[in-house]
């Protein structure tokens, strides 16, 4: 009897694996087929809009991104801007998420739902007023800097300017990602028992000490998840850089890509595909390396 049962179950198990395999296979094919074109075209000396097997394999498209176009600069700018925005989001959301988790203030719920729902506002609706604000800040800054630094002002403003400067775009990208990151961190801290802190409080630790020695180590997985998502979304945003950056020195990868695409009937598909692959790699790598621990982190969040 037992053997019969277990063999039946084994058969059932086999049936399940088959079902699982075919499900995963179908979904995977659906997911990766669109990538074939962009991947093959990037190595194709004669790339077209449609998929075909390259007649002449070449690295030329990639070389051109860095020699003919300013690919190196675009890559640096993208990494720098999105990197800074991500760090900013992680720090702010770490503190803010903790505060939201522990706070019992009456405005906590409205605040949380408010920032979540504000995400439905398409960024396109915010662009015009955002531009006005950033320009105002930018003009104030330049009014202060100009009398002091004179001709150097423009070089300084390239870093600290709000329009067409690193600082402005970093702040904007960070602000866009902050709501989701705050939610992730808040949910994460909800699952961290306050007992640890209470113990620390009893031991006489100050808020700074508690953060430094208790909360940051506990929050690391959550911070990593929030950072990862912020990085991926901010990396993919092209509307904000499009509107707020114009100097050639500040161009980022999506702008380079968009420009290559908008050359209408002069589109160079090989170049376009090569830029796309370069642009695609960092978030893909981030996702692939982080996928296990993402699930683990959200497990904490969902439980709480």
């Amino acid at each position: 009897m037992p053997t019969a049962l277990s063999s039946a179950r084994r058969r059932q198990r086999h049936g399940h694996s088959f079902l699982s395999y075919s499900t995963l296979l179908l979904i995977s094919v659906f997911c990766i087929v669109p990538f074939f074109w962009i991947f093959l075209s990037s190595f194709d000396g004669d790339a077209q809009l449609f998929l075909h097997w390259p007649q002449q394999w070449t690295f030329d498209n990639y070389t051109r991104v860095f020699t003919v176009e300013d690919g190196g600069l675009w890559l640096f700018n993208s990494l720098f801007i999105v990197g800074c925005a991500t760090i900013l989001v992680v720090v702010l959301a770490g503190f803010g998420g903790y505060a939201l988790s522990r706070s019992r203030a009456w405005w906590k719920l409205p605040f949380l739902y408010g920032i979540l729902l504000i995400r439905v506002l398409p960024p396109t609706a915010l662009v015009v007023p955002l531009y006005t604000i950033l320009l105002t800040l930018n003009n104030w800054e330049s009014a202060i800097l100009r009398p002091i630094f004179g001709g150097l002002t423009r070089d300084i403003m390239r870093w600290t300017g709000f329009i067409d400067g690193y600082l402005g775009i970093i702040l904007v990208l960070a602000a866009m990602q902050l709501p989701l990151a705050l939610w992730i961190m808040k949910t994460f801290f909800d699952s961290v028992s306050p007992e640890y802190e209470e113990a620390a409080i009893i031991d006489g630790a100050s808020l700074v000490q508690r953060i430094r020695y208790v909360l940051i180590p506990l929050a690391l997985p959550g911070l990593a998840a929030a950072g990862l998502f912020s990085f991926i979304f901010a990396w993919g945003d092209f509307l904000m850089p499009l509107i707020f950056l114009s100097s050639p020195e500040l161009q980022t990868l999506p702008l380079g890509l968009f420009r290559a695409f908008l050359r209408v009937n002069e589109i160079d598909y090989g170049l376009l595909a090569a830029i796309s692959i370069i642009y695609l790699l960092p978030p893909a790598a981030a996702f692939v390396f982080a996928r296990r621990f993402l699930v683990a982190t959200f497990t904490g969040g969902v439980k709480g």
């Binding site: 006005t132 320009l135 105002t136 003009n139 104030w140 330049s142 009014a143 100009r146 009398p147 004179g150 001709g151 050359r263 209408v264 002069e266």
Partner: peptide, 30 residues
């Protein structure tokens, strides 16, 4: 406010002689 700041900037610029740059917007490769 932006206008005011603009005016301030203008005053500041005129007082300092720097390298003069004219920016031109152009589009389409051709």
């Amino acid at each position: 406010l932006a206008l005011g700041a603009c005016a301030l900037t203008l005053l500041a610029t005129t007082s300092i002689a720097g390298a003069q740059t004219i920016r031109i917007a152009e589009h389409r490769q051709a």
